[in-house]
């Protein structure tokens, strides 16, 4: 069970130790410097699963800098990858369902567009995408981590290993939740992901935001194809592939 944080003004808190420090008060403002090494709720094995997930998402949404500072820069990759799969999967699943709903509405309101009905995504394909998404999310996470880490090495900001970069990108998947916002969710998710990655890399690798930004944006500046190849492994590309196969 989770322990409660000490009330302010009482005896000084116990020395911080990874895995044993109480989580931040839910929804409350943590006084700066009080728990500098408190672990991320998701990385605290003592917290209940859904509480840890919810608190971690909230932390990355409201205080990303603090969240990345509390992230363990090393350790088992299981938890960060599981986090990425859960939040990424929610984003993919909800955006796919929105797509299906919007497609139905669009065709319903515009009878002249009925001829385009065949261009939609069949329900079975949509189901396959939702089921296979976790695999593609993990592959996408690894390949994007490799690319970003390589760029971080080129700009001289890789103070830690590839595993640290992967952890940052995994928690950066929080931005995939923007996919639940209809219409603009996709673009919001991309911009938010970039912002989270820059903050996270700077914090985790103890490098400057400039170098972190250069590493994250270098693939965009260098190429479009490289990005497209990375997207190959994403759910979006899977949609197109399976849809293409279904129509041939």
């Amino acid at each position: 069970m989770a322990t409660m944080p000490p009330p302010p003004g009482d005896a000084p808190p116990p020395p911080p130790a990874h895995g044993s420090v109480p989580p931040p008060p839910p929804g409350g403002q943590e006084p700066p410097g009080q728990h500098p090494l408190a672990p991320l709720p998701w990385e605290d094995p003592q917290l209940p699963f859904f509480d840890a997930l919810f608190e971690t998402v909230k932390l990355f949404v409201t205080r990303p800098e603090d969240a990345f500072r509390r992230m363990a820069p090393s350790g088992s990759l299981g938890r960060p990858i599981l986090y990425a799969v859960i939040v990424g999967w929610i984003g993919v699943a909800v955006s796919q369902l929105y797509g299906l709903a919007m497609q139905g509405m669009f065709l319903g309101f515009m009878p002249g567009m009925q001829s385009m009905k065949g261009l939609g995504i069949p329900f079975v394909v949509l189901l396959a995408i939702i089921i296979l998404a976790p695999l593609f999310l993990v592959i996408g996470l690894f390949i994007s981590s490799l690319i970003v880490h390589l760029c971080l090495m080129i700009v001289g900001g890789a103070e830690r290993g590839l595993d640290t970069t992967l952890r940052v990108l995994a928690y950066g998947y929080t931005a995939q939740l923007a996919g639940v916002v209809p219409m603009v969710g996709g673009i919001v998710s991309i911009v938010w992901t970039i912002v989270l990655q820059i903050i996270g890399l700077a914090e985790a690798h103890h490098t400057t935001r400039g170098k972190a930004a250069a590493a994250v944006l270098l693939p965009f500046l260098l190429c479009c194809t490289c990005l497209a190849v990375a997207l190959f492994f994403s759910g979006a590309a899977l949609v197109s592939a399976i849809t293409g196969a279904a129509h041939s």
Binding site: L222, C223, C224, T225, C226, A237, S240, A241, G244
Partner: peptide, 24 residues
Amino acid sequence: RLLPLLPRCAFHRLTGHPCPTCGT
């Protein structure tokens, strides 16, 4: 099957020249 569905290189479209990773 993915080839025609991938986004075209914006750099190539804008400048008429390949970007450093064109052809990947």
